[in-house]
C-alpha cells in the first residue's frame, strides 16, 4: 500500500513521474501537495464507502477520480472538501487537515457538483455577487463581468438561475466555481448535462484556467475521452478502494487496452 509519507511532492504517487511540461508543480517540488489523501476511510453503519484510499495531487496537476456508481468518488471528494469527516485517515488540502482546519483554506478552493444547485430564484448576476462576496473577491463587479463574458452568459445574466436550461446552469455553476480564482478546484462530473459542443467548450475553459492560474483540479467523471483530454493522471476507484492509478496512456498500456474507456470497463468487470 502506498503511504503518504513515502510520496514525493511534485511527483506522482505510483510512477514518480515529475509534473507535466509547463505545470508549476515542477518548480513547487518542495511545497506541500495541493491535495493529499492519507489512509482515508469512511464507514456508514456497516458499509465502508471509502476504504483505505491514498493519493496525492501535486500543485498544478489535473487529476481524474474515476469509478462506477457507488465506487466512493463522491464521498472521497466530500471528505477532501471537508463536508464529510473521515472515519480514519485524513484529507489534506494545501497542507490543512480538512476535518479540522478547513476554514484556513476554503477561500482558496471552490467546487462544482451536480448534487448542489445555485439558488434558483436569484439571477445569475445576483448568485455570482453573493458568492463573490462570500469568497471576499476584490473588484467583484469586474470579475463578474469577466466571467459573464467568458462563459457566454450575457443574455441570461439577469434571468433567474432556476429558469435556465441544464447546460446554462452548468456554465453558471462552473463560473461560480471560478469566481475566487481558486488554487484548488474540485469538480464532480462538470460536463454531465452538456451537449458535446458545450462540453468541449467548458473543457476548453477549464484547460485555459488551469494553464493560466497553474491551478490544481481534481475531477470525477464518467466521460473517459474527457478524462484523457483533461487529466495528467487518473485514480480509479471501485468498491471504495483505489484499484489503479497512473497516466491515462500508461493505464491503457498496462491493462493492454486501447483507451481509458476499455480500462474502466475491464476494471469494473474484474471488480
Amino acid at each position: 500500500m502506498t503511504r503518504i509519507a513515502q510520496l514525493i511532492p511534485g511527483k506522482h504517487p505510483a510512477t514518480g513521474i515529475p509534473a507535466p511540461g509547463n505545470s508549476p508543480a515542477r518548480s513547487d517540488a518542495d511545497e506541500v501537495p495541493a491535495i493529499a489523501v492519507e489512509d482515508l476511510c469512511k464507514k456508514y453503519r456497516t458499509h465502508w464507502a471509502v476504504d483505505d484510499v491514498n493519493f496525492i495531487v501535486p500543485k498544478g496537476w489535473t487529476v481524474g477520480l474515476l469509478g462506477g456508481n457507488g465506487a466512493g468518488k463522491t464521498t472521497t471528494i466530500a471528505m477532501i472538501m471537508g463536508l464529510v469527516v473521515p472515519t480514519f485517515g485524513r484529507a489534506m488540502v494545501l497542507g490543512c487537515d480538512m476535518a479540522k482546519d478547513r476554514h484556513k483554506v476554503l477561500s482558496r478552493m471552490n467546487f462544482e457538483s451536480p448534487y448542489v444547485a445555485l439558488p434558483g430564484r436569484l439571477t445569475v448576476r445576483e448568485n455570482l455577487m453573493v458568492f463573490g462576496r462570500l469568497y471576499g473577491v476584490p473588484d467583484l463587479k469586474t470579475r463578474i463581468a469577466e466571467l459573464i463574458e467568458e462563459f457566454g452568459l450575457g443574455d441570461v445574466a439577469d434571468r433567474a438561475t432556476g429558469r435556465l436550461s441544464a447546460g446554462q446552469k452548468t456554465r453558471v455553476a462552473v463560473a461560480k466555481a471560478l469566481i475566487n480564482d481558486p488554487d484548488v478546484l474540485l469538480l464532480d462530473e462538470p460536463t454531465a448535462s452538456l451537449d458535446p459542443d458545450r462540453a468541449e467548450w467548458v473543457r476548453g475553459r477549464l484547460r485555459d484556467y488551469q494553464r493560466r492560474r497553474g491551478a490544481t483540479i481534481l475531477l470525477s467523471s464518467h466521460n473517459m475521452p474527457e478524462v484523457e483530454q483533461l487529466c495528467d493522471f487518473v485514480v480509479i476507484m471501485s468498491h471504495g478502494r483505489v484499484v489503479a492509478m497512473g497516466r491515462p496512456r500508461e493505464l491503457a498500456e498496462r491493462f493492454k487496452c486501447r483507451d481509458l474507456d476499455e480500462v474502466f470497463i475491464h476494471l469494473a468487470r474484474v471488480a
Binding site: 472538501m81 444547485a117 434558483g120 458568492f131 462570500l134 471576499g136 461560480k176
Partner: peptide, 14 residues
C-alpha cells in the same frame, strides 16, 4: 430547498 447548503458549507462562511 434550493440545494445550496453545500455551496455555503464549502465557502469561507462560518
Amino acid at each position: 430547498w434550493s440545494r445550496n447548503l453545500a455551496n455555503l458549507m464549502m465557502s469561507p462562511l462560518k
